[in-house]
Amino acid sequence: MERPGGPWDPGLQIERTTLAWLRTALTFVVGMLVLLRLIAHESNLAAAVCGALTLPLGVAISWLAWRRHLRIERGLHAETPLPGGALPAAVAALAVLAGCSGLIYVLFA
């Protein structure tokens, strides 16, 4: 049975999902800033390399989350396929890089 407004349910809470992705990105960025501060006490070069790898990815995740939100909203109204997995892949990559940065801190400390 199809609803009069379309096949999608407006209660899907696209906004809540987007905010969750943005909170995840913000958490990674803040956590990485704290970790970079700790790494900088041991090696400025290691901190610069870790920051150059992780902080732009945190900003990219925020951009991907917003773009995904817009594409999902348009896609639900137009009944087109929903976006792929670029955002979860970017978050996984950031988690791996954050773990490697933490490992660098442990090895240098």
Rank of each mutant, 00 (worst) to 15 (best):
V30P: 01
V30I: 14
W66V: 14
A65K: 02
M32Q: 13
A60K: 10
A93M: 10
A98I: 02
L33N: 08
C100L: 15
E79M: 13
G31K: 01
G11N: 09
V59L: 13
T17C: 13
E79L: 13
W63E: 06
H41E: 05
V59G: 06
L19I: 00
R67P: 04
E79Q: 15
T17S: 08
A40W: 00
R23N: 11
S43I: 05
L45S: 01
H77P: 02
R68I: 04
P83K: 08
I14G: 05
R71S: 13
D9E: 12
S62E: 12
R74N: 08
I72N: 09
R16A: 14
A78F: 07
T17V: 10
V29W: 02
V96I: 11
L76Y: 12
S101W: 12
H41W: 00
W66N: 02
P4E: 10
L76I: 14
L19T: 00
P56D: 08
T18L: 00
L94S: 15
W8D: 02
W66R: 03
R68F: 13
L26K: 04
L53H: 04
G75M: 07
E2K: 03
A92Y: 03
D9P: 02
L87D: 07
R68K: 12
L87M: 14
L12K: 01
L36S: 06
R3H: 13
A86F: 09
D9A: 01
V29A: 15
V96N: 14
M32V: 06
L64C: 03
N44T: 11
F28L: 05
R3C: 07
T27C: 10
A90E: 06
A20G: 10
V30D: 14
I72Y: 03
L12F: 11
V49P: 05
A98W: 05
R37M: 08
Q13G: 08
G5Y: 04
L94K: 09
S101M: 13
A60G: 00
L45P: 00
L76D: 11
R67K: 12
L94N: 13
L19A: 07
M32R: 00
V91R: 04
R74T: 09
M32E: 07
A86C: 04
L45Y: 11
L45M: 01
L35T: 06
T24K: 05
L107Q: 12
R68Q: 09
A52D: 04
V49Y: 04
R16H: 03
G85M: 14
W66K: 11
L64I: 04
N44P: 03
L53N: 01
G51Y: 06
A60H: 04
W21M: 11
P7Y: 05
G84H: 10
L82R: 04
L22Y: 01
G31I: 01
A52H: 06
R16C: 03
P7I: 06
G51L: 11
L19H: 00
P83C: 12
G51D: 08
M32S: 04
E73G: 07
E2R: 07
L35P: 07
L97G: 11
F108K: 15
W21T: 02
E15R: 09
I61D: 09
E73S: 14
N44G: 14
L35R: 05
